[in-house]
Amino acid sequence: MIIEGTVIRVGDNIDTDVIIPARYLTSTDPLELARHCMEGLDPDFLKRAGENPVIVAGKNFGCGSSREHAPLAIKGAGVEAVIAASFARIFYRNALNIGLPILESEEATKSLQEGHRISIDLENGTIKDKSSGAEFTAQAFPPLLKDVIRKGGLLPYIKERLEKEVT
């Protein structure tokens, strides 16, 4: 699957409290959560993001609380993918579980500039900067996680497994 989008940059250690403040966590609706996405970091984030944004972050993206509402808010806001130098581990699992594409590449995050048009090949993890021509390869996922990603998330994967156990 190929994703195309425009880079929106954020810094290091972006925590889940700024991605979606706790006062909105009484909702589990991605579109409702999306209205407040990154509100704690930049109230104009959604305006700045424009069409088909791809978040490019520094290290430890998604640290702090385990709230799955964070990747849900990002996905609900129409963000195509998140590329980071590194991810906090709970956010990493959550994103894969709900089908938000994430890519880990320190090189890409050093080079990709705000507003650059990029294309991402999710199957092989390559990121192409269409504005500069540069190419990067993200860290590969282990086979189990590839399976989860292919099925569209953890629960479709588990459902299939439970059905197999029954038959």
């Binding site: 385990s66 709970i90 699992r93 959550n94 189990l144 953890l154 629960l155």
Partner: peptide
């Protein structure tokens, strides 16, 4: 260890996790 809601839902259903 902490995880997200979907991971925990999976652990409830399977009794296992990765």
């Amino acid at each position: 260890t902490g995880m997200g809601s979907t991971d925990i839902a999976g652990a409830w259903a399977l009794g296992r996790t990765w």
